[in-house]
Amino acid sequence: MALLEVENLRVEFPTRRGSLLALDDVSFQIEEGEVLGVVGESGAGKSLTGAAIIGLLEPPGRVTAGEIKLEDRRIDNLSYEEMRKIRGEKIGAIFQDPLTSLNPLYTIGRQLIETIRVHMDLTQEEAKGRAIDLLGEVGIPAAERRIDSYPHEFSGGMRQRVVIALALCANPRLIIADEPTTALDVSIQAQIIALIKKLCREHKTAVMLITHDMGVIAETADRVAVMYAGRIAEVGPVRRVVKQPKHPYTVGLMGAIPMVGHDVERLTQIDGAMPRLTEIPRGCSFNPRCPKVFARCREERPELMHAGRNAEAACWQFDKEGRRG
């Protein structure tokens, strides 16, 4: 049994010009202790997927079909209060901008202790001890002293560490990290990645790592799901996806990333841009930009299908029977 199962998730935004389908038929699992990377360009739906799981979709967006199961229990139909309890205890969240996750008016100690005491039956003193331990664990030097500081007294990297400590308060089973390193400098980024990896190993916490940065995914994730225009284009172990991408979009994406040591005159270029939600083409949403497009791609929408060992891709070129027939 997987820790998190998402099945045929569909998220829509009703607007006055009709409903926008932001997520269409998204299915994936996250195993205990696993880091699943979710990668895609802005607007691909990766952050929405995370928001749908923790029940924080911005209105008027809502889940219109599908199921989200955590430890075999449906969580997509819970009330706001029930969901809030799950958000602290079972699922932690880390967002891109650490400042939005921290209240600037309270010391970080107060915020940590309050969160700990909401979810765990501890006294003030015990909670404070745990808060200091957590801060130490995420690499904040002199935690006993720093616990009484306010968020603005920390640098960006240190703030993100505090947010991670906050997400870890109740020992959640799953952490949803939405672009946790994007706002940080490269050297700090490497530190935060190393920290997430270490915590994942030590606590057996699963992580859903949402990012646009394939480098971060390659460093951190076990498996990766590539999203395009509100659907999953390809899923597989990170090494396989990076080294032998199957879906033409992933192939293009990997070739588009400039790499140190690769002396190429031009980068692989996928022409055009990801379609807006109102203009998603018929058939496979990637077909207008796809170098391998054939008739069927323009008519039918491919589901995720077997695409070789360890590989699932939503692309008709892997539908052997369909092609023969």
Partner: peptide, 9 residues
């Protein structure tokens, strides 16, 4: 999403 998601013709 930021640039006019409804911007059809």
């Amino acid at each position: 999403m930021s640039d006019n998601p409804l911007g059809t013709t």
